[in-house]
């Protein structure tokens, strides 16, 4: 499933290359955020941009998320296409007003007269940094009308969805999973062929990365990679597990989800965001509303506590390939038990 060959790049390099290409293509694209210019981003996703595009288009900001996220919105409304980096998504708490009340609502509140075409990139997911630096919070954004939420699962989508995000006329939250940023693309369970320049990937169109039958695992971001590993393990046990990548939480490919669900005996939704009131519930509601009693058996596997620091505690609650496989196994055996003899 990995077509990257001997490519030694990681996800953050791909993000930087994509930003580079877009800044080259469109002079209205600017990049701003903490440590994005001199350092090139704490994950390296804005590396070497300032060298090419200078201080005017690549701006290190003070640690003032409200001010610089708000400024990105104001600049977008005035005609630029800012790509603003929120270093860790957990810092959402210090700028949520600008995102929730200004960014998301400008178009609606102006009756369509004013747009805020910007991308807010943010690193998400657990890398052993405990409760305030490991969250995903995708559903917190997705809950707010007016925001689009892209959550790439693979190197190819890091490029392709980012292109779409920058060119989109709506504000887009672009969630970059830290494992995807840090892992060499050739070492991932799944990677596209990256030899050709990236094409824009349309929002709102899920993809099936693996055919199943017994159970279909629906996920986003790095959980898709883990689900593929889990599916591999399940196959050795004789369980055919499919994997579906939703790609964008908003717009959500509801038709596609219903189609996938209709073809599956069981559907497991996996998320490293919190379980309650989140993507799992949204996917399951979509399927249940459309298929009613014809829906497959449904289950979710996601976080229900803050993320702990200690490794064993962390592993006990953050989904892994093993925990996803176990959840899928449990769902399949429960489904089998339901089938009348």
């Amino acid at each position: 499933m990995n077509a990257a060959g001997s490519d030694r790049r990681n996800g953050s390099q791909l993000v930087a290359e994509t930003l580079h290409a877009e800044m080259d293509r469109d002079p209205s694209v600017i990049v701003l955020g903490e440590d994005v210019a001199e350092l090139g981003g704490v994950f390296g996703a804005t590396r070497r941009l300032r060298r090419t595009y200078g201080d005017e288009r690549v701006l290190d900001t003070p640690i003032s998320e409200t001010a610089f996220v708000g400024a990105a919105i104001g600049a977008a409304q005035a005609g630029l296409r800012p790509v603003v980096e929120l270093m860790f998504v957990d810092f959402l708490g210090v700028c949520f007003d600008q995102i929730m009340n200004q960014m998301a609502k400008a178009r609606y509140m102006s009756g369509g007269a004013v747009t805020a075409p910007l991308v807010l990139r943010s690193a998400v997911g657990c890398i052993g940094a405990a409760a305030q630096h490991s969250q995903v919070l995708s559903a917190t954004f997705a809950h707010i009308p007016g925001l689009k939420v892209a959550f790439p699962a693979s190197p190819g989508d890091l490029r392709g969805l980012l292109l779409t995000a920058i060119r989109d006329d709506d504000p887009v939250i672009f969630l970059e999973h830290k494992w995807l940023l840090k892992t060499r693309v050739a070492e991932l369970p799944f990677c596209e062929d990256l030899s050709e320049p990236a094409d824009a990937v349309p929002f709102g169109e899920l993809r099936r990365l693996r055919d199943g039958g017994d159970v279909t695992i629906v996920a986003a971001g790095f959980m898709v990679q883990l689900a593929l590993t889990a599916a591999e393990a399940l196959e050795a046990e004789g369980i055919r597990a499919g994997v579906v990548d939703v790609r964008t939480l908003v717009p959500l490919d509801r038709e596609g989800l219903v189609r996938e669900a209709a073809a599956a005996d069981a559907l497991l939704v996996v998320d490293d965001d919190y379980a309650d009131y989140g993507m799992c519930g949204e996917v399951i509601a979509t399927v249940a509303e459309a298929l009613g009693r014809g829906a497959p058996r449904l289950a979710r596997h996601a976080l229900d506590v803050p993320i702990p620091a200690n490794r064993a505690l962390e592993e006990a609650v953050v989904p892994s390939a093993a925990s996803i496989a176990a959840a899928a196994r449990g769902l399949v055996s429960a489904s089998a038990a339901q089938v009348p003899a």
């Binding site: 001010a67 400024a71 990105a72 919105i73 600008q98």
Partner: peptide, 13 residues
């Protein structure tokens, strides 16, 4: 909330 937005507008202009 108007202050950050004004800064961004000014930055663009």
């Amino acid at each position: 909330a108007s202050a950050p937005l004004a800064c961004g507008d000014a930055l663009a202009q």
